[in-house]
Amino acid sequence: MDIKQIQDLIRFVSKSGVNEVSIEQENFKITIKTNQVQTVVNATIPDTGYLPAPQAALLPAAPAPAAAPAPAPAAAPAAEPSNYVTVKSPMIGTFYRSASPEKPLFVNVGDEIKPGTVLCIIEAMKLFNEIESEVSGRIVKVLVDNASPVEYDQPLFLVEPM
């Protein structure tokens, strides 16, 4: 992991409202802790904007492009019927709907799924993690755009249970 990836991770953690993140690889371990109280902020971050480094960061950070705004997709489930199950991201990373641009999408709106069905891939730390369904049902809505960053616990899909 290089310094730019660490700085991006620090920025992402400070914006996500998570109080602590630990990542461990073969010969590398990092823990990022913040002293922030977890809050929900509905704001639009311009794509060209830069954010200062968080005060509670373990390492100094240089400015980098801001992540795509996530509050809009997170607000969508509130307007949906309460009988839907929300499939949430188990990690921070980049959301992909297919294994590669040439391959078909894992799932589409209207598809029936069962436990173990691969719904998407989330790339985190150059590792591609298949996200599998834990419920049976039908995909009602995809809440995240392909190749966009996602936060921990961010809603990804709405599923109508069967």
Rank of each mutant, 00 (worst) to 15 (best):
A72K: 10
I30P: 02
K29E: 07
P63E: 01
T48L: 07
A57P: 03
P54T: 06
P60D: 03
I32R: 08
A64Y: 12
S82T: 15
I32G: 03
T31R: 04
F28M: 02
N83I: 01
N19Q: 11
Q55W: 05
S82M: 14
P65E: 07
A70V: 10
E24K: 15
T39F: 07
Q25A: 14
P65W: 07
Y84F: 14
T34P: 05
E80D: 09
V18Q: 02
P77T: 00
E24I: 07
S22I: 10
Q36T: 04
Y84S: 00
G17N: 00
A64P: 00
E20A: 04
P90C: 07
A57C: 02
I30W: 07
M91P: 01
T86K: 08
A66I: 06
V87G: 00
A62M: 12
Q25E: 15
A67L: 14
L58R: 03
A53G: 12
K88W: 01
L59I: 13
T44E: 14
A76K: 07
A78D: 10
A67W: 09
E26H: 12
K88S: 05
E26F: 04
G17E: 04
G17C: 02
A53T: 02
S89T: 01
P63Y: 06
V37C: 08
L51H: 05
V18E: 04
E24F: 11
A66Q: 08
P60Y: 09
A75Y: 10
A70S: 14
K33Y: 01
A53E: 13
T44Q: 13
Q55I: 12
I30C: 06
A72L: 11
G49V: 03
A78F: 15
N35F: 12
A53C: 13
A68P: 06
A62C: 07
A74M: 08
V37S: 05
P60N: 03
A75T: 08
P69W: 06
V40Y: 11
V18D: 04
N19W: 02
A53D: 07
P71T: 02
M91K: 00
A76E: 13
P54G: 08
N35P: 00
A43V: 03
Y84M: 08
P69S: 15
T39I: 06
T34A: 09
T44R: 14
N83R: 09
I32Y: 14
A43E: 13
T31A: 03
A67P: 05
I23G: 05
M91I: 02
A53W: 04
Q38M: 04
M91F: 01
I45L: 10
Y50V: 02
K88R: 14
G93V: 00
A68Y: 15
D47W: 13
A67H: 06
P90K: 11
P69Q: 12
V40L: 05
T39E: 12
